[in-house]
Write a protein that binds this DNA or RNA. Structure first.
Lengths: 191, 191
DNA sequence: ATCGACGGAGAACGATCGTTCTCTGCATGC
DNA sequence: GCATGCAGAGAACGATCGTTCTCCGTCGAT
């Protein structure tokens, strides 16, 4: 097995286990077993558990961004693109492995003791809000109101993630989508 | 020191430390030092760390509920009461010890491995939504639309908590409040 | 075929943690 | 004044975890 596939297997296994049980509840041995990559190789690629976790979060950040990018690109109008983000969330919440947003969860567990984790979570949330800002700006909304609307949409999206994680239901995505529609109407983003 | 004050000191110390660093990063010795209660007494009152954590969360649940209750009771109209919840959040987010919602954080860390923690978090979030539902119903909104609006408001509140925890800013409370106002207007909850 | 470098399996190590136990002192009841 | 039981301080214990090390087999080069 070459280094690239070992790394991918490690990140896959670690991501799954961290999502399932949290970070500190997962031992390096469990990651080794789940990935089939030896401990020696693991520590060559990721010198510490913190490094592995941050790599997992960074890769997940990329996955999330491109997933949202793809979901919104499938629609034409800014309004439909914004709503597509919430449809994307609903589909995500429906996966049976879903147990909340990795960044919200990792921040809750480690944000107080790991600056690295806190920084990555912050960057992820900022990128979500920035993405909403771009979509809203594309509708012709002036910068000030666009930023405010984007912040509100980001709060909705994060609320859907937190609520869906805890309740284990897809409903929060639909509720957030409905609320987003109301906000878009009020801001006169109709197309 | 009698049992009641020992228990209170333990819950205070544990709550502060858990909020600050997460649950698993806090040793029982740290709780002992911070509370000034001996380990022996601690284990007499709370037979395990899990018991202590659940007691902390249950007490916090009460605190949160009564805080919201008090904040809303200070206003007359249903609309003002709903908005008062978000003002309450803003004040909370401004406290320098704020590091996110204890239930969202605890669920992220332990929801996957502790049924007890998951249940308490779920109950807390349900009670928040129920409270919104009562406020909205008091405005004369019919049950169906009232429940939908309450769910949307709950998503907003949870989103504000998650976002404020990660970004360390009070802004999400204001953005959520503005969004709530728009939703109330759209639902014709004007007084 | 022999040597040597490398990778895997898992034991070992040191630290930490939850929990329990021991020892000591003290206060209270006779 | 003395015995008795309780509480505190912290050592001890057993388990777990992150990390490193040892041993062994394999494979490629000469």
């Amino acid at each position: 097995m070459d280094a690239a596939t070992a790394e991918a297997r490690l990140l896959d296994a670690a991501e799954t286990l961290f999502d399932e049980r949290g970070v500190q509840a997962v031992g390096m041995d469990a990651i080794r077993s789940a990935s089939g990559v030896s401990l020696k190789r693991l520590y060559q690629l990721f010198p510490s558990k913190d490094d592995l976790l941050e790599a997992v979060l960074r890769r997940r950040d990329e996955t999330v961004r491109s997933g949202i990018e793809r979901a919104t690109a499938a629609h034409e109008s800014p309004r439909e693109r914004v709503l597509a983000v919430f449809d994307h969330l609903e589909e995500w919440f429906g996966r049976d492995t879903f147990r909340g947003c990795s960044f919200i969860n990792a921040f809750g567990e480690l944000g107080g003791v790991s600056q690295g984790v806190a920084d990555i979570a912050r960057a992820n949330k900022r990128s979500l809000q920035d993405h909403f800002a771009e979509l809203v700006a594309a509708a012709g909304t002036p910068p000030g109101p666009a930023d405010r609307l984007a912040a509100q949409l980001a709060v909705l999206a994060n609320g859907a993630m937190a609520t869906a994680g805890i309740t284990g239901s897809q409903d929060p995505a639909r509720h957030a989508r409905d609320a987003a529609k109301t906000l878009l109407d009020a801001a006169d983003v109709r197309s």
